Simulated assay, not measured.
Amino acid sequence: MATIMSCPPYRGRRHNYSAGGTDIVELRTPTAILRHGSGRLTVLRPGTDGERVLDVPVTDLLKVRLNRRADDAVVIEIFLRYPTAVLTGVPADRTPLPVLIAEHDVPAAVGIVDRINDQIMATKRVDVAAPDLTPPAPEFGRSGPSRADVDRAVRRMAPRKDARSAVAALQRYVTPDEYVLETAVVVSAPPAGTGTGLLAATTTRLLFIAIGGGERYAHEMAVPAILGARTVEGHSAPGEVDTRHGGTGIDVSDGNRTLHFAGVDRADTERVTCAVNFAVRRQAADGAPGPADPGVTQLYNEWELLVERHSLGMVDDTQFQRYGRGILRSL
């Protein structure tokens, strides 16, 4: 435990002072001394010895709240983040440590509780680093150009021998300013064409490249024009594609029309759906100002984005668990 700094004489129940450039706030009640500063929360028993009841870093706190008990007593309840036994051996995340305060101390207690919770929120915030989506330079071989992002996306896809020509075409179609996220073999319906093809989701567009011995063509849709994508289990309306190939299809909407792609492999189509939504949200978020403090909506959106990155393989399991705990605890 850190050594508690000696306090100068105080006047009143709430006392603010500075030690080493750090503001320290203290609330003295008949039963306890609550001190917050230097990144720690300390509760002392009143008296000359200054016996510590609690001395923890703010990072170990789940929350602090002001509560009025059934007997009308007002207490500051301190919840620890981890189920550490405190005093009675009862897990502190379920039974908080109470600090009894007088009625006239409530205004001062409100300020300290808000200050502590603000710091708890700041320590819980997790900045999820954006994935490196810098388009790699192509390498040229006998079969033409080859890019690492295309190769990685194709390797995640269920192997299809008939897709080789479309993969080779994708290697030539990708531009220096886009990054290929995911690919899947699908069956397309008009207006994106008719037949089997390779569907590629990049950071700037959705690209369909026909497969087979028929007419060779490609259909593209810019990401800024897309509102979103969703997976569907089947279509029953006239003119829509039957998704018997694996049972899961993709609907991509621009707000006016919807492109339907029947899935050949469920996992592939779900990854492409996530990739399209990721690209749409990334395009919308670039350069957009955000609020100074995170709201519930923003934190929930961060969670959804983290899930998408995890499903795309951009965040491994360990990072997903660490980042996810930080985001969910901030909700």
Rank of each mutant, 00 (worst) to 15 (best):
Glu51Leu: 10
Gln319Asn: 08
Ala102Glu: 14
Thr196Ser: 14
Ile24Ser: 08
Arg325Gly: 15
Val223Met: 07
Met1His: 05
Gly195Met: 08
Arg230Trp: 08
Ala218Asp: 12
Pro159His: 05
Arg325Trp: 04
Arg271Ala: 04
Pro294Glu: 11
Thr22Asn: 09
Leu27Val: 11
Val252Asp: 02
Thr231Met: 06
Pro9Ala: 07
Arg65Met: 14
Ile211Arg: 00
Leu34Phe: 01
Leu170Lys: 00
Gly263Cys: 11
Ile209Val: 11
Val187His: 08
Asp286Trp: 13
Arg13Tyr: 10
Pro30Arg: 10
Gly290Ser: 08
Ala102Gln: 08
Pro191Val: 02
Leu331His: 09
Pro289Tyr: 06
Gly39Cys: 02
Lys161Met: 06
Pro57Val: 00
Ala2Pro: 11
Thr123Phe: 12
Gly249Ser: 02
Val86Gln: 15
Val232Lys: 08
Gly213Cys: 01
Val113Lys: 03
His235Ala: 06
Gln119Val: 11
Val75Lys: 09
Leu62Thr: 09
Val276Ser: 03
Glu270Ala: 09
Arg13Val: 15
Glu304Cys: 10
Val307Arg: 12
Ala189Phe: 09
Leu312Gly: 05
Gly249Ile: 14
Asn301Lys: 13
Arg125Gln: 10
Ala218Ile: 07
His36Asn: 08
Asp49Leu: 10
Arg282Val: 11
Arg69Tyr: 07
